[in-house]
Design a protein around this nucleic acid. Structure first.
Lengths: 157, 157
DNA sequence: TTCAAATGATTAGAAGTCAAATGATTGCCG
DNA sequence: CGGCAATCATTTGACTTCTAATCATTTGAA
């Protein structure tokens, strides 16, 4: 009944202290940095990060359904449709219905899309890539492993 | 999977391979999980995660400027204003101009806001908190340290 | 066969976010 | 003084994302 209670592990977690608090703070910093990077990428290349992820999904998976892209890019199907609308209007991808099951819509790259894929910058800025690459291998692996573990913990609803 | 390697090998700047690719994938998973959690929180308590963070900032810092909240919550000043508009319209906080420098606007909790703070759930769902707490201390610290390091690397534009 | 449920994509609607422009005020310095 | 630059908050406009509802199609069971 009282949904506050179900989310409230304990009253003294109302103000998360220590680990959970620091965790939220760091997550928020990463989320924001990701958003800002996405905007910078859009200014530089005309593609936001999610658009680039979807584009790479199409490049990699070939003729691919909307649902498959949704899973690949970690975005809701509705969002993928919005992004595909955009990419299609710019003639970067094209969509067409399956002839055997007309519910299904496939997406594939156009010629222009293939060019774009080969000329598009990476997700991260060069400055970040440089700094990250400068870390000891051990740290890089630790960061990645920690992030994957966190994503797993947060992921299953 | 290996065909990705060959595809990437040519042009490792364009198609991030290996670590950078996995890093982006994990970041996107965390970003989405955070967004979904924020929406679930809003349904349950009427506050999104950013709203809750700003509210905690006000509760913690007392009479606080918009800029200070922006820094505290890792949000742009414009976004903080939007959130404060919302919280103020619900009588959770109130704003007033400094008498000594009329450019500055302070925000503080109302009575209702103080009640809300003590009854508000944490950022994370109980399921996540439970799973996270079940990890060995060493893993928890590793996740947190990795995330903080990543936030630092991404943060400096 | 027929129709209800399932499936895939899309649309409608609401919320959050940022950069850039704007308004208001203060401080500096010539 | 007096005006120009800096500072603080806000508004504007554009974009992304999600959930929920909807449309079209296919499948399965009576």
């Amino acid at each position: 009944m009282d949904e506050h209670q179900t989310l409230n592990a304990r009253r003294d977690e109302t103000f998360p202290t220590g680990e959970l608090r620091g965790l939220m703070k760091s997550i928020r910093r990463v989320v924001r940095a990701t958003d800002l990077q996405s905007r910078a990428l859009a200014r530089a290349s005309g593609l936001t990060t999610p658009q680039l992820v979807v584009l790479m999904g199409v490049a990699e998976l070939g003729e691919v359904t909307t649902n498959a892209l949704s899973h690949y890019a970690d975005l809701s199907p509705a969002t993928v449709v919005t992004i595909l609308d955009n990419l299609e209007s710019r003639a970067i991808v094209e969509r067409y219905r399956s002839t055997t099951d007309r519910r299904i819509v496939y997406t594939r790259l156009t010629e222009k899309g293939r060019d774009m894929v080969t000329n598009t910058p990476g997700f991260f800025g060069v400055d970040f890539v440089t700094r990250f690459a400068a870390l000891p291998e051990k740290r890089r692996r630790a960061i990645l492993a920690g992030l994957e573990e966190l994503a797993g913990l947060m992921g299953r609803a």
